[in-house]
Amino acid sequence: MRLRNVKGSDEKVSEHSRIIENEKDYKGKWNEKFGNDNPIHIEIGMGKGKFITTLAKNNPNINYIGFEKFTKVLVRALDNLDEEELYNVYAIRMDVEQILDVFEEGEIERIYLNFSDPWPKDRHAKRRLTHHDFLERYEKVLSPNGRICFKTDNKHLFEFSLEEIEKHGWKTEKVTRDLHNSDYVEGNTMTEYEEKFVSLGMPICRLEAFKEKI
C-alpha cells in the first residue's frame, strides 16, 4: 500500500528531538550522544517504529537507533518516539548504504532487519539488504560478538539470504521457517507487518547471523 505524504512532514521530522539530523558527526561517539556506555542496537528500515520503541521500553540498558530513509514513513513513527521515558532510542533519516559514514568499526552490537523489501527481480538482487555488499558493511560496524537478526515473510528472500550469508563465511543459528511455531518465538517482538501476517496464518522466517572475527 502506497503511503500518502503528510503535510509538513519534513518540518515535523527535522524538529523532532529523537531524530538525528547530523548523524555523521557522531561516528565513533554515539555513546556520548546517549550519555552512557550501553551496547548499541540498530534497526534498518524502522517503518512506523513500533518494533524498536518496544525494544527500547523493555531494555533500558540498551541504546537503539532506527534507520528509515523515507520521510513519509518516518513521520508516522513520531508518535511512538514521543514516549517521554524512551531516552534510549533515536532515529536517522538516511539510506543504509551510508552506514559506514555513521558508525565506527565495531560500534554496533546487533542489527535488526525486519521484513525488508524482497526486490523479487534477479536484476535487483544487489538492493536486497542481505546481499553480500551489505553484509560487508555490516561486518565492519559490528563488534566481534555482534550479530544480525533477520525476519521475513518472503521465502525466496529467506533462501537467498541463507545462501549469501553462508557463502560469504557468516555463521547462522536459530534458523526457522515458521517462527511462531518454533522454539525461538519466546521473547520475540513483533512488527506491525508481522502482526498482520501472523493474523493471516502466514509463516515467518527468521535467522541470526554472525561473522567470527579473528
Rank of each mutant, 00 (worst) to 15 (best):
H131M: 07
K12N: 01
T176R: 12
L129T: 02
E23G: 02
P118S: 13
R128Y: 10
E208Y: 13
I19W: 00
D25I: 04
L207D: 06
H156A: 15
W30F: 05
A56W: 04
F67Q: 00
P144R: 13
E195M: 08
W30E: 04
L142H: 10
D79A: 00
K155C: 02
H156D: 15
H16R: 01
H180F: 10
E208N: 14
T53F: 01
R177G: 11
L113R: 08
N59W: 01
E32F: 07
K29D: 04
D122R: 14
N188T: 01
D183I: 10
I165V: 15
N181F: 09
K57I: 00
F67L: 02
D10E: 14
M94H: 11
F134W: 04
H124Q: 14
H180C: 05
G201P: 03
S9W: 11
N80M: 01
V141A: 11
D117K: 09
Q98G: 11
N154A: 11
G45I: 08
L162I: 14
G106W: 09
R137M: 14
L142Y: 10
V198R: 07
T53C: 12
I62Y: 03
E32R: 10
K151Q: 04
G169N: 11
T176V: 13
L179I: 05
F210H: 15
H131F: 13
D117F: 08
S143D: 09
R93H: 09
H168E: 08
C149H: 14
D95Y: 01
S14H: 06
V89K: 02
G187L: 02
A209D: 06
V96Q: 06
T53H: 03
M94K: 14
Q98M: 13
E212G: 13
I65H: 06
S199G: 08
F34N: 08
R206N: 09
K12C: 01
F103K: 07
F197Q: 08
K171Y: 12
A77W: 00
H168C: 12
K155V: 11
E208H: 11
E164N: 15
D25T: 06
F134E: 02
L142S: 09
L162V: 14
T189V: 12
I214L: 14
F103S: 05
S161H: 10
N31F: 03
L113H: 06
V6E: 05
V185H: 05
G49D: 08
V13A: 03
Y90P: 01
R127V: 05
E163A: 15
S116L: 09
K12P: 01
I204Q: 02
K29C: 05
H16Q: 01
E105C: 06
E84L: 11
A125E: 13
L100T: 10
T191K: 00
K69W: 00
T71I: 08
E164T: 07
W30L: 07
K196W: 07
D178L: 04
E11H: 03
T71F: 00
W170Q: 06
I52V: 09
S143C: 12
W170G: 08
M202S: 11
K12F: 02
D117Q: 10
E21C: 07
I62F: 03
Y184W: 09
I20D: 01
N31L: 04
D122K: 15
I111N: 09
G8L: 04
K29Y: 03
N22K: 14
D117I: 06
N58T: 12
F158Y: 12
K167L: 14
N61R: 12
